[in-house]
Amino acid sequence: MARLSATRREALTFYLCISPWLVGLLLFVLGPMLVSLGISFTRWDLLTPPRFVGLRNYERMLNDPLFWQSLKVTALYTLLYVPTELVGGLALALLMNQRVPGIAVFRTIFYLPSVISGVAFVVVWMWIFHPEAGLLNLALAQVGIAGPRWLTDPRTALSALWLMSLWGLGRTAVIYLAGLKGVPKELHEAAVIDGATAWQAFRHITIPLLTPTIFFNLILSLIATFQTFTSAFVATNGGPLDATLFFVLYLYRQAFERFSMGYASALAWVLFVIILSLTLLVVRSADRWVYYEGARR
């Protein structure tokens, strides 16, 4: 048996060690993905064999008003939600970073919604948003405001879902919190000695050192938001009047209500390309605004 060189052996060990993941990826991720790419060029209702239709599924999107509506809803919601999650999460993390007695309890409370299952979470909020008997409108009535019909009004439904999602800020905040803990104290001390105000210290020390965390949260949030599904599926089912018809919900409908597997797969690939390009865009932009301590520039 030939002796392997040290580097080769190292490489072999590496592949051996990651093989459980690699096999899983090939079998359960890459395989299905390629199959779905193939299906996207067919018409398939599961009952009869798929029929090759070339690019027709992709052409169909151009004239499908619901495709554009779902894209619009998803983009609008992403524009609304991602910034609030980034800023709100940071604000929450700053609060949770205070040294006050019992802060661990608050951290737990704020993180708590993140461990609740998505559906249970949404159902609770549906009660809160109930137009007549809901907590929110009862509270608004106390101060003399006639609350809107939230989930049953096309003008407020998307905002209601946005409001609902803000409950999950804790997850982002915890990641920020870890980032905040990593900001060296001595930099702040030096800044204070030099006469910097709290805001200046925050703006010129905390924020730059936090950019890798912001970057990570941005990518995570972007991808997750583009895939919003549970809240719309459970609370509004895309309505009223398609005001909350998210892209993934529309895709789900095509696949599992209409059983148009071909069209659904084509939609999935369009979503994949959109998410991939946005993510790459963010990654490319990182050079300009993400700073790593100790990195050579």
Binding site: P32, M33, Q227, T230, V248, F256, A264, A268, F272
Partner: peptide, 11 residues
């Protein structure tokens, strides 16, 4: 993301 989307959004 793509896989989940391909799976019909059971994300």
């Amino acid at each position: 993301a793509g896989l989940l989307a391909a799976c019909g959004g059971a994300a």
